[in-house]
Computed example of a mutant assay.
Amino acid sequence: MLPSLTAAEERLLLRSADPEAAPVGEDLSAKTLSALLDNAEFHGILPIMLRKLQESGDAQLPRDAGLRDRLEDLRQKATIATGQSMLLQYHGDRIMKGLAADNVPARIVKGPVFARKLYRNVADRPFTDIDILVEPANLARANRVIAACGFELGSNEAESYELQEFK
């Protein structure tokens, strides 16, 4: 169960969620920071909070060994998520170049676009997939280009055409 927050802690969480707001500089107890981290993870703002904690410096963090171990683990996972996002961006770019070369109109939407356009630090908005919009009439051509880039359809083909969503 998600730890509940006081009104003051909710304001801290909201400030932590704002990528442009100053890092939280207050002294926090291990219990409060742990609850904030749980809530940040649940609400998808953990990367922003971790960056801000890093910017504030570890000297201001509680001296709780368990909390510091958890922070180290979360930071490693955030680094991996950033790397995965970079790899996805690379493959998305490859696919888009292939689609353009075959004159298949397409656009990448959501994840990498949001990360690039809405966040000063792209690592604040990791993503786990690449969504490419293609007109239904061009799906077969787009799928051939994507296959030529080394990807295989991971879902049922007939169902994918019915849903117009290919994985």
Results as ranks from 00 to 15, higher is better:
residue 9 E to K: 03
residue 9 E to W: 02
residue 24 V to W: 00
residue 39 N to F: 02
residue 57 G to R: 00
residue 36 L to K: 07
residue 52 K to V: 07
residue 30 A to Y: 08
residue 37 L to D: 08
residue 8 A to Q: 14
residue 4 S to Y: 00
residue 98 G to C: 11
residue 86 M to V: 08
residue 145 V to K: 11
residue 111 G to K: 02
residue 157 E to K: 15
residue 109 V to K: 07
residue 12 L to T: 07
residue 94 R to D: 07
residue 18 D to M: 09
residue 151 F to E: 07
residue 121 N to K: 15
residue 56 S to P: 02
residue 27 D to F: 08
residue 20 E to V: 06
residue 95 I to D: 04
residue 105 P to I: 09
residue 77 K to G: 01
residue 30 A to T: 02
residue 28 L to Q: 02
residue 13 L to I: 04
residue 121 N to I: 12
residue 84 Q to I: 13
residue 88 L to C: 08
residue 94 R to M: 13
residue 81 A to I: 03
residue 34 S to V: 01
residue 162 E to H: 14
residue 167 K to G: 08
residue 125 R to E: 12
residue 53 L to E: 02
residue 15 R to I: 01
residue 161 Y to Q: 10
residue 76 Q to E: 08
residue 156 N to C: 14
residue 11 R to Y: 01
residue 94 R to I: 09
residue 83 G to F: 04
residue 126 P to M: 09
residue 68 R to E: 05
residue 103 N to Q: 13
residue 59 A to W: 06
residue 104 V to R: 05
residue 16 S to A: 15
residue 122 V to S: 10
residue 13 L to P: 10
residue 115 A to R: 10
residue 23 P to D: 00
residue 74 L to V: 00
residue 102 D to G: 10
residue 88 L to P: 02
residue 154 G to L: 14
residue 103 N to C: 11
residue 100 A to T: 13
residue 104 V to D: 04
residue 155 S to V: 14
